[in-house]
Design a protein around this nucleic acid. Structure first.
Lengths: 327, 327
DNA sequence: TTGTAGGCGTTATCAA
DNA sequence: TTGATAACGCCTACAA
């Protein structure tokens, strides 16, 4: 390579890194030779020399098959964002995330770590201090003193949902819960939001009931209908997928229930704002990956590139409330 | 490190790589010292020396937001399989996949390339010869002379669906098409299966019609019902998501349509065999990631580790047909 | 503006 | 069974 361009190796190096001025014609010669030989600097050698590997580890353990769809959005978005900032993403899907993360950080393969699909007692978060690299979680695990956390403020989301209904004079909301398995594995954000709703409902003297996801199926939808008809329920807060909520709403409407006269509806579900929900005028606080991932990337790259200390940092973002006719 | 264990650097190296026999007590000393210093071999230096990086590039360009869920399954499964074989996966999501792939292969970061979400005229496949590394696609693009391809045999799947209906004396199937956008971007496998169905329907003298996905919505489901009632349609081949197909089936049943007496139903959709479909007795040929990904990994690791030539190889797998009461 | 040389951590070769 | 040493390709301080 250096021979072909008739320059020294250092000239080649500087031509690529731009860390010292090069005469235009020399630069030209180098780049032509590079093109000719299909040359690219060797990643391994480069990594050995420089502190920056431009690789981050994306830890998304496969806890639960059913959950894949929702957090796939997150790590695709995460990879996109990291790429924009010049980083490649190493996908770690092992069940036991900790060992894998240690392997890639301690061997100096990855500059930083991103944890996704956080559970309440997340072991990957608890072990963050042992990675020797900055670490950030999308979510808020119980132990978070050794890493940064970015998440929607689900505490606030629960409160906003309850307060909005309270302001409209509603007293008896029902909470359409997401998959039971999500609660069994103690999905962090779901627990936080559910607790918050109960706390605030109590404070406002409201009667909050819950419906398991299975009861949303057609055969059981009757019960929900009757609760509303008999005025035992006057509002719905849903965390099931929009398409399922749509099924419920349509079923209720076909039985003569009117929104928001008979029942208010608020959706708090994964995914970008749903056009179907908007079409029906259903209010929603969507869980959109984009702003969260962008914030997480910014924080992590700051830690990697400027050496900022981020352990213990918690950044909770205010949910966006699309208020529509359903409340 | 070598000092602490009182051995030479080469002994440390061999202790970790296992490439030459080490006396147990020496090995012990090395590992204790490693634990003490929290030492792990430097990945960069390792990559520089050895031909194997144990990293593969996973190219999944974000062509279409709506499509994310279905192929997220694939690259999660892919990462899992590669991990089992000792490889990490580098997630490449850039819109223009080619440049990214070249970057990681030419810089000796990745040992091989896996292409996902293949379209008919896939440019990443067409450029595979320029990567300088073995490359494999999950799917069958038009140009595939420079890479290996693994896929379900969608040609055969279309044929099997048609022939099964023909064997049962059906003459007028309707094809419930997936998202229109998937066809607009020329998703490879959808085109193949659709063509195949038309070819074989023609051969058997059957009358195959098509329904756009939008017509599955409730407001248009009436038309489908009427077609069946009037005997203009006697069978359904669906490639929409199981949950949507369920909606259709229920709507038809509530209008008095009986399966399979009035209409046969076959589902050919992404995801593992659906328990809801099984429950209703609906036959299906599911598009499951696991066997495809395993086959692809085997071929790719064979190419990487044994230097097998895989360019031009095409491996089509026979679809699994779960025949139930719906046909 | 460009070249020379030393060192990064690992592995392969050769010697003990 | 283990040790010493020379590469690998890159970066950079220093020399020209």
């Amino acid at each position: 390579m250096a021979r072909l361009a008739k320059v020294s190796v250092s000239t080649v190096s500087y031509a690529f890194s731009g860390k010292r001025p090069i005469r235009p014609q020399t630069y030209e010669r180098v780049m032509n030779a590079a093109k000719e030989l299909d040359y690219a600097p060797n990643a391994g050698a480069r990594m050995m020399r420089s502190e920056h590997k431009n690789i981050v580890a994306l830890s998304a353990p496969l806890r639960l098959k059913q959950n894949k769809e929702s957090y796939a959005d997150y790590f695709i978005e995460m990879a996109r964002q990291e790429h924009e900032r010049g980083y490649d993403s190493l996908l770690l899907t092992a069940e036991n995330g900790v060992e894998d993360i240690r392997r890639v950080t301690r061997s100096n393969l990855a500059d930083g770590v991103i944890l996704m699909d956080i559970v309440d007692d997340d072991i990957r978060a608890a072990q963050a201090a042992t990675y020797g690299r900055p670490c950030i979680a999308i979510g808020l695990p119980r132990h978070h003193s050794d890493l940064a956390c970015v998440d929607l403020d689900f505490e606030l989301m629960g409160r906003m949902a309850i307060e909005t209904l309270h302001d409209k004079g509603r007293t008896s909301p029902i909470f359409l819960k997401g998959p039971r398995k999500e609660y069994e594995r103690r999905s962090s954000y779901r627990l936080i939001m559910r607790n918050s709703m109960h706390t605030w409902a109590k404070r406002y003297g409201m009667h909050l009931t819950e419906a398991e996801q299975s009861t949303i199926r057609e055969d059981c939808i009757e019960q929900t209908y009757e609760s509303i008809r008999d005025r035992r329920v006057d509002s719905i807060i849903s965390e099931v997928r929009p398409i399922q909520l749509l099924g419920v709403v349509r079923a209720l409407q076909s039985r003569g229930i009117v929104i928001p006269d008979d029942v208010s509806v608020i959706s708090c579900a994964a995914g970008t704002p749903s056009s179907s929900l908007e079409h029906l005028g259903i209010s929603e606080m969507p869980l959109t990956p984009q702003p969260l991932c962008a914030a997480a990337c910014d924080i992590l790259t700051g830690a990697i590139e400027q050496g900022q200390q981020i352990a213990g940092l918690v950044s909770l973002r205010k949910p966006t409330f699309y208020k529509r006719t359903s409340v």
